[in-house]
Write a protein that binds this DNA or RNA. Structure first.
Lengths: 342, 342
DNA sequence: CTGAAAGCGCTTACAG
DNA sequence: CTGAAAGCGCTTACAG
């Protein structure tokens, strides 16, 4: 920070409100008002301020503004596995919606390590975020509690521990999983299987549980394969092992589209199974690849648009205002990986 | 902001350095020093401060800190199409690397509209970001110039206008495109085609130009299909139209993996072509799907890890310090969509 | 509508 | 090593 000999303002690249005021021939307060929607200021002085600001290339310093106002405008998104189709799409919608509502989004990539979450939490606090949204499925109890303690607004996506003061947004996993089972049974499949990862995310667990329940209610047993990450490779391996077994399944519900694509490739490419005639597959998420010709997977769509819109409303309106937890429908997307009911 | 009747400090959820100082029995300055690496402070007072801070749940306010220091710690990532496999992976690496280096990342989703870029620019300036990194391929001249004018550090990814004061990071598109042509020719393919989108990104244009040049140097003409977004659907359509034509190609270089997957599906599913015997396909990016069994696409890998590491170095070290533009190799990833040279 | 003034929460020379 | 003081760039009652 350099300073001229005579004590004149240092030569930053940024103009300050002070300088704008000087040039416009108004007070420092007037400049503030010109950039505060709804502030009482005459058209005349506003025009003068705007002219001076434009000339000087002035940009309100939101750091300083955040110091005085209630809001910093910052919303933190805590997320792992950003590169995943579902999460990156959600991130896309969320960040766009949040921006349109006048917020700025800070992404805290929590990775997989537990320690990173603590770091993310600290940043959230250090930058005085107005709200933080946890997208990941792993239960970040510590981060949740600390944010609440600091009076931050907290939205939890796809989690099942309902911390008081928190808003929980989820998808109707139960309904979808039951639908999957019903679809298989109605179409005549009988040797059901479920493929999941070793990751015990609340969503994944819910899908698993309800699929099993629905099958059991119909007197049908379900083979279960679980392992690895929630990724294509796991699905490929799971599908392969399932089909190599003695009584291979003729229908598998993969708890995620990524897994489903792997299962599909195992079935078709490694075992030459015809889909959906010899084996039916259903996934979850409706990622882009589910619609690709090589897969054409029947699945359930994540309502990312609705989730994003609702989140924005929560962040803007506050959770006290009668807002509550919400469960979104995940509509079935019919494609060709399951035989249709006759 | 509420204030008690007697003028005592307002009841925020956050403790201030002032309060920590009081509880620890030291000066306000001492608290600052305790949280400034390298500051001169005795072990004794540091311990006292830390104890008090822990008791009060104190977190340094980085907004206020940013006001005084040179750095805010904020790095902006301007990006469109976050949901895309390549970009989301780059975002993942970049955000993780930046965080590990002590920065916090602000994502500015620029979408496709031109106006959004202006908004992103303004945010970058409003929050006094230390640096901004432009990931998108669309030429955001305006944003680039304004950031430079405000003394911000600017890193441009995959662009070709070398604004002074800016660092440009790119991938060796020329080499890759030439390699693609060579691979096809050596393997005996003769009716070459190129599939690209209607988006005139510098990278895409470079790949196109050099592929055409290399083919032409070998006396081979190239059919060109261009249209739509840089996405699977365009590849599917392009592949379909190309193969429906009078003299269908027997080898196509798709300027992107997403396009290549579409081409592959058109060839195999719609025309029953055997890959690589009847048609060879090469893509670019090495997105995850390129490795899936249904595609098994030969392609060029984006060095996302290297790009991320280098970007961090630029942001940390400053660009004056002998840092310069850099072109990364995109190594060939051999898979089965092209016949191997005999 | 407008300006002077206090204050947000921090850092950093400046003198001990 | 340590404290008092000035200052970062803004906003917001408070009086006109």
């Amino acid at each position: 920070m350099e300073r001229t000999k005579d004590g004149a303002p240092r030569s930053t690249a940024f103009a300050s409100a002070q300088e704008v005021a000087r040039l416009a021939g108004v007070s420092r307060s007037a400049v503030s008002r010109a950039f505060t929607p709804g502030a009482s200021i005459s058209e005349d002085t506003r025009a003068k301020v705007e002219a001076a600001a434009a000339k000087l290339g002035y940009h309100v310093n939101h750091l300083a503004r955040g110091l005085m106002r209630q809001k910093t405008g910052i919303v933190c998104l805590v997320v792992a596995d950003i590169h995943t189709p579902y999460l990156s799409r959600l991130l896309d919608h969320l960040s766009r919606a949040l921006q349109e509502a006048g917020n700025v989004v800070m992404v805290l990539n929590a990775g997989r390590a537990a320690g990173n979450v603590e770091a993310a939490l600290r940043q959230t606090l250090n930058y005085r975020a107005d709200a933080t949204i946890v997208l990941s499925g792993t239960p970040y109890r510590s981060i949740a509690q600390s944010c609440l303690d600091s009076g931050q607004r907290l939205v939890l996506l796809n989690r099942d521990d309902h911390l008081p003061g928190t808003v929980n947004l989820a998808v109707d996993n139960a309904r979808a999983a039951r639908t999957a089972a019903t679809l298989f049974l109605r179409a005549g499949y009988r040797r059901l299987a479920l493929v999941s990862s070793a990751i015990g995310t609340p969503s994944l667990l819910a899908r698993r549980r309800h699929f099993l329940e629905a099958a059991s209610e119909n007197g049908v047993a379900v083979r279960i394969w679980e392992g690895g990450a929630t990724a294509y490779d796991s699905g490929l391996q799971g599908g392969t092992e399932l089909l190599a077994a003695d009584e291979p399944p003729d229908a598998v519900f993969a708890v995620t589209d990524l897994l489903a694509c792997g299962v599909l490739d195992a079935a078709r490419r490694r075992f030459g199974r015809r889909v959906p005639e010899e084996i039916g597959v259903i996934g979850f998420d409706d990622i882009e690849q589910a619609g690709w010709a090589s897969y054409d997977l029947t699945t359930f769509a994540q309502p990312v648009g609705e989730i994003a819109d609702w989140t924005v409303r929560l962040v803007a309106g506050g959770i006290e205002a009668g807002m509550e937890d919400r469960v979104f429908e995940a509509p079935l997307v019919w494609r060709s990986s399951v035989a249709r009911t006759v």
